[in-house]
Amino acid sequence: SSQSQGISSSSTSTMPNSSQSSHSSSGTLSSLETVSTQELYSIPEDQEPEDQEPEEPTPAPWARLWALQDGFANLECVNDNYWFGRDKSCEYCFDEPLLKRTDKYRTYSKKHFRIFREVGPKNSYIAYIEDHSGNGTFVNTELVGKGKRRPLNNNSEIALSLSRNKVFVFFDLTVDDQSVYPKALRDEYIMSKTLGSGACGEVKLAFERKTCKKVAIKIISKRKFAIGSAREADPALNVETEIEILKKLNHPCIIKIKNFFDAEDYYIVLELMEGGELFDKVVGNKRLKEATCKLYFYQMLLAVQYLHENGIIHRDLKPENVLLSSQEEDCLIKITDFGHSKILGETSLMRTLCGTPTYLAPEVLVSVGTAGYNRAVDCWSLGVILFICLSGYPPFSEHRTQVSLKDQITSGKYNFIPEVWAEVSEKALDLVKKLLVVDPKARFTTEEALRHPWLQDEDMKRKFQDLLSEENESTALPQVLAQPSTSRKRPREGEAEGAETTKRPAVCAAVL
């Protein structure tokens, strides 16, 4: 046999249950609850290399294929790409003598399909299967379609040439079993990697079954959420508030809700932002270029202005709740996480202390139980975000031990490091100062900020419009641009040419 590394010779191994799959997660993409704000000051410096380099560890398999027929071997997927077919160049070659004697062998292509993985959001991997055969590759009886790919989820059954000719079961060793999710959700989405997690739940990458488009699904544990919100009269209202707010909003710089499922837990389906959180971008770069800050901040102002015009105060604006559309420097941003939002009543007064301390406005800290506050709290938070983006460190921090965090904020005395700000323009610093004003009545509004000289930049605004146009074009394009080929190089076993392929839609398939 010419099988590559990772293939075992026996096809009769006992199949494990899916609970053996491991679970991976990374930083929070968007969480309903406010958790302790991640610290920006503690960015690790590059460490000196050791005298002796450690040995390379043996790579762990990321997936496993269990053979369902004699003549096929099990495969431990270690590499990122595997070709399957009769050709000797394939990493998994159909060359077992037992297999060659079967009637089905002649229906398999020289290069029938490939399984591979690509880097997705949060640097996690996504597994795909890609059909290159004349007679078809099927996943859970659905045709992939020649020249098309679809994501592979845990426990997928792979069939060759005929939908009933099941050859492998695919085990993704990095994700959960699909069966743990409600059927209504599974009918519409293929669940994938964990993108982030918080005290009350997690955010998962998923794929729409009909279109193969990526989405983010925010899962909120009702049990954990009820415990964490025990002081509230009705904890469920917080989730329902977020859903109702998101459904009503329609702005290019605000995250869109696509679906909602109320089962044992809450499942909020949101558009996916491939670039992750602004927080991670700031930490990764230490600070952002001023031109990049301007492009992002302009969009934040437009989003918050839209919220305020619609009578909504976000109340928890922070870099973790600003998501980026891509890994590119120039990209769209979207505001997310409306769990603490407040729809303005007639009095415009709110007395609930919520939000993240580092970003809270002075009037929030001094008015607990005594007075109210209004939309100006969001403008203060925007000032803190702009400060961080321009400088790479927070204006107020618990680690300045000589003054408490509350006193720093209520006095408006931010930590100004001259040598850092020497590289920032006077106009940018002036806008920061106009937003970090203790008196909410004297603080800049979103309208005033948008009129500030720093943002009178036609090149930046043109760039934003171009990015918007690109997004609109990409969302308007159909996901499947061509029909699967019906040509046949070899006959199917026991049926006429093209008899099955043309009847089945290529579900969740995307043209390369």
Rank of each mutant, 00 (worst) to 15 (best):
L272R: 15
A442E: 11
D262Y: 13
K318N: 02
V511Y: 07
S411W: 02
E329Q: 12
I257C: 06
D407V: 12
A371S: 11
I333F: 02
V507H: 09
F260D: 08
K463T: 14
E328R: 06
D265T: 15
H251L: 10
Q408S: 12
K286H: 06
R488N: 10
A303W: 00
E290H: 04
K318F: 01
D457F: 09
E290C: 05
K248V: 08
K289V: 03
I313H: 01
L332A: 13
L246S: 04
I333T: 08
L307S: 14
K463I: 14
L301G: 14
V283R: 07
S341C: 01
L481V: 14
S411I: 05
H399Q: 11
N285F: 10
D316I: 01
E493A: 04
F338D: 00
C508Y: 09
K256Y: 12
T347S: 08
F416K: 00
L455K: 02
V507K: 09
L349I: 08
L349E: 06
Y414R: 12
L323K: 11
H308M: 08
E290N: 13
S474T: 07
S326P: 13
Y296C: 12
P252F: 11
D337V: 05
V377L: 04
P478R: 03
V507A: 06
L278N: 02
K289M: 07
V283Y: 03
L246N: 00
G355R: 03
A449F: 03
I268Q: 10
K489Q: 08
S326C: 12
L288T: 07
G355M: 05
A376C: 05
I257E: 12
C379S: 12
L288Q: 09
P478L: 12
E329P: 10
K289E: 14
E419G: 15
T356I: 00
S381Y: 01
G372F: 14
E244L: 10
W380P: 01
I313V: 07
A303V: 00
K441Y: 11
C354N: 00
Q299N: 11
L302C: 11
T445R: 00
L324V: 09
C354E: 03
R315E: 03
D457G: 05
E458Q: 13
W380K: 01
L249C: 05
G311A: 11
E329A: 13
C331V: 12
E277A: 04
P362A: 00
I335A: 14
N285L: 08
R287W: 15
G345C: 11
E448M: 07
T401L: 14
E290F: 04
E447M: 09
K318S: 02
P357M: 15
Y296Q: 05
Y306R: 07
S341H: 01
E320F: 05
P484F: 00
D430Y: 06
T358N: 11
L344G: 11
E242D: 03
L295M: 13
K294H: 07
C379H: 12
V403T: 12
K294G: 11
H340M: 05
Y266P: 00
V377C: 07
F260Q: 11
T502A: 11
L435F: 14
S487N: 13
E329I: 12
H452S: 08
E274N: 12
E426K: 10
E419N: 12
W454R: 03
R287F: 13
D262W: 00
E470V: 13
L270V: 15
M300A: 15
G383D: 02
I312M: 09
K247P: 15
E309G: 06
C293H: 06
F260G: 12
L246D: 01
L382H: 01
L278R: 03
Y373T: 00
K503E: 11
V304S: 04
Y267C: 07
M460V: 11
G276D: 05
L450W: 05
L481T: 11
K489V: 14
T446L: 09
E447D: 10
R287C: 14
P252A: 06
T356V: 00
D280Y: 15
V269T: 08
E363L: 01
D457Y: 05
L512P: 12
K258Y: 05
L270R: 01
A442V: 09
M273N: 04
L435S: 00
T502Y: 00
K286Y: 07
K489E: 10
G355K: 06
L365P: 05
